[in-house]
């Protein structure tokens, strides 16, 4: 996308803002009806724990794990992830955390594994002399402390205000307002998309959304700085269209996008989810700065140009300029 494309989309900025609003409202409704999808290791979980001696853990764990996995497959239990809890010199444990496990199936699996352990630890058995215990539990963790969400929201607002004040001092009040709103909009937009797409919501998502907000600020400042350095003859829409730092934004977006794709492709699923959230945060920062900010800047620029025109129309010329023109 080049600045030519900006000239085609600049007048539709209001519609692009409305899209953000609609997505936000949808995400709120969605989360009220279906709840937020918290990550695999939070929320309600059923677990099956096998406790064993350290020597068995170090030397025969694989045999036990194979037997457990066979039993889980028979019962149709899906292991979400496994904790390998080690404690030197004493009892270790392996905790299997299941996805959507019924109590009935879990108790059946427990009974079968207990029976297998009894057989194998009896005289002549392959695990003779070892003592193992099997227990089942349910766990319910606070997904993300509610105070985190409240604090994160307050921080996002304060951050935007502080940056807005700096930009207002450097570039003018209304541009400061735009610099204040742009990162907020980007953060809200990315959080809404993450909720709507049911991507597992973890504390890492806060990081991704926060960095997306920072990138949105960077993009806005790059645009404002480019506009300031523009040709004196450029005014109004032309100034804004040519001032949008498209190339810089897209290069940053491309560089980060490629890096995040690499991270997502190479790493395992939870890291992929994080990379996806980060990509969403990056894309929303680009969206806001390519489609919404230029429209807002156009309005501000048009008002500024009108004001400048009314000053020259009055015929007033400053003393210095009068002297210069006489010379």
């Amino acid at each position: 996308m080049t600045n030519k494309c900006i000239s085609k989309t600049i007048h539709k900025g209001l519609w692009f803002s409305i899209i953000v609003g609609v997505v936000l409202v949808l995400s709120i409704v969605f989360s009220v009806i279906f709840g937020v999808n918290y990550a695999a290791n939070v929320g309600d979980d059923k677990t099956l724990t096998v406790k064993m001696e350290t020597f068995f853990y170090d030397n025969k764990l694989e045999e036990l794990e194979d037997a457990c996995k066979d039993e889980f497959d028979k019962q149709g239990l899906k292991v979400n992830y496994t904790y390998y809890g080690e404690m030197s010199g004493m009892n270790c444990e392996v905790m299997y955390v299941f996805e959507n496990a019924s109590d009935e199936k879990l108790q059946s699996a427990k009974a079968e594994i207990l029976s297998l352990i009894d057989t194998n630890t009896a005289d002549g058995g392959v695990w003779h002399g070892y003592v193992m215990r099997v227990t089942t539990s349910s766990e319910n963790a606070n997904a993300i402390p509610s105070s985190y969400t409240v604090k994160a929201t307050i921080v996002a607002v304060v951050l935007s205000l502080v940056v807005g004040i700096y930009v207002a001092i450097r570039y003018g009040v209304w541009k400061g307002v735009i610099a204040c709103v742009a990162p907020l909009m980007a953060m809200v937009f990315s959080a809404s998309i993450i909720v709507l797409t049911r991507i597992p919501f973890t504390t890492s998502v806060f990081y991704a959304v926060a960095v997306g907000g920072l990138l949105a600020e960077v993009f806005t400042v790059l645009t404002l700085s480019k506009m300031r350095g523009a040709d004196e003859n450029e005014k109004g829409e032309q100034l804004v269209v040519n001032g949008v730092a498209c190339k810089e934004m897209l290069y940053i977006g491309l560089a980060l996008g490629v890096a995040l794709l690499l991270v997502g492709v190479i790493a395992t699923w939870p890291v992929r989810w994080f990379a996806l959230c980060a990509l969403i945060a990056l894309d929303t920062a680009l969206y806001v700065n390519l489609f919404v900010v230029p429209y807002a800047l156009l309005i501000v620029q048009k008002c500024a140009d009108k004001k400048a025109e009314s000053k020259t129309a009055s015929g007033y010329v400053g003393a210095q300029k009068k002297e210069d023109s006489k010379e």
Binding site: A152, L159, V218, L222, R228, G229
Partner: peptide, 30 residues
């Protein structure tokens, strides 16, 4: 011509970082 643009970008990022520093809520380290 470019120095003030670069300064603006980093000042804005630094201000944002400082605000996040006081946020707590697990964002301190980040």
């Amino acid at each position: 011509k470019t120095i003030w643009g670069v300064v603006d970008v980093y000042v804005v990022l630094l201000l944002a970082g400082i605000v996040l520093l006081f946020a707590g809520a697990g964002l301190f380290t980040m």
